[in-house]
Write a protein that binds this DNA or RNA. Structure first.
Lengths: 203, 203
DNA sequence: GCGCCAAAATTAACAGCGTTAAGATTGCAG
DNA sequence: CTGCAATCTTAACGCTGTTAATTTTGGCGC
């Protein structure tokens, strides 16, 4: 069912990783409502109570899923921004952010959930790259040419840019923002246009 | 338990409304995870199956809750914008939006959920004021003085403003955006500053 | 090589959930 | 006052998260 190490190891194995992997698969294919602990166990090929050897409870598994997701998310943003400089670098991060959200909506939503985020924070297990992404975003913004924004309280531009990107991501996920409405037939082009427009470096 | 019409009417009563009211109360006080159909029935003082006379299933009740919420939401924005003109009117809508979200996070999140939104759309039961809010927002934006945004593709400014407001709302709900970080001790002032900054009419 | 032990996994059970079916209760029209 | 349709209740189904008691097993000391 999963490609995770039931090789020679029959009784033991890398069950923890396998459970996380199964959970992500269910999340991606059928959304969060389909993600039950019993089903994860079933599809991993173990008994219903087996997960409790590796996770305190269901939310502990979800936390682990989120940690995996955040790493993925960070790499996603980094890849998109890699090799670019200045405003393009910033745009890359933003586009990576939005694309990740639209391609992995259930995972992204789970990662955004306050309760999960709190348990992540208190355990200090949020990967650096996650906050790193927004730190880079913030620095990019501070360094970017934003004369058209006026002069006052530039520090507010950082949370505003963050909220802008976060808002686009969420609106696209909830399908309240359709490319067609604004004359785009391709979502990728729409996203790119939105990002470059709000960053001020469009043609 | 609820103030909803168990007066003379003993067997009958305005059960439908009472259930919705109880559901909202639970949602507001303990969040969406505490909102079970059986508990709504219990706290309304009826049997577990009673709700099924008035609602097809749980999600049908949630839809009704959302309809109530949207009306509330619309009034909230309208009240905040009422009496103002031009850019201030627009700012009022935005501030109303964000305040509603932070004051009723669980309800706001539920209203934003795609599945619920879809069942709302197909039933055509979304109150006018909801879309109205964003139509007004859009028109306000189109009419507002936005010279500082440059000239190209002004139509994109509408979804961008929407996303900006939506993003601020969501970031505040998930507590990833703290007023203190940016030198504000009062959330209301922080929100106001953010809105006026991004609308370009700050001092 | 062997036996023991801690770790890992299983089975069984509990309460609570959404949902349905069958039956009881009630207000109201005739 | 009778009957009916709407409303509500009781009982049951399978599913869920979670716990306790039990069995299996891989590896370590001998």
């Amino acid at each position: 069912m999963s490609e995770h190490y039931q090789k020679g190891k029959y009784h033991h194995g890398d069950l923890r990783r396998a459970l996380i992997s199964t959970a992500i698969a269910i999340l991606e294919s059928e959304g969060v409502t389909a993600l039950t602990l019993r089903r994860v166990a079933r599809e991993t090929g173990v008994s219903q109570a087996a997960p409790y050897t590796h996770f305190r409870d269901k939310s502990d598994l979800l936390t682990a899923v989120c940690i995996n997701g955040t790493e993925w998310f960070g790499e996603y943003m980094k890849r998109e921004a890699n090799g670019k400089t200045g405003a393009d670098y910033l745009a890359g991060l933003a586009i990576g952010h939005i694309h990740f959200a639209t391609e992995h909506p259930a995972l992204f939503r789970l990662m955004s959930t306050r309760d999960v985020a709190e348990s992540l924070d208190e355990s200090g297990r949020i990967p650096e790259i996650f906050h790193e992404g927004y730190r880079i975003l913030a620095e990019g913004l501070a360094a970017a040419p934003l004369e058209h924004f006026g002069s006052a309280n530039r520090q507010l531009d950082i949370p505003l840019a963050w909220a802008q990107i976060y808002g686009i991501s969420n609106l696209l996920i909830e399908a309240r923002l359709s490319p067609q409405t604004y004359g785009f037939d391709d979502e990728t082009n729409f996203i790119s246009a939105l990002v470059h427009r709000f960053l001020g470096n469009d043609a």
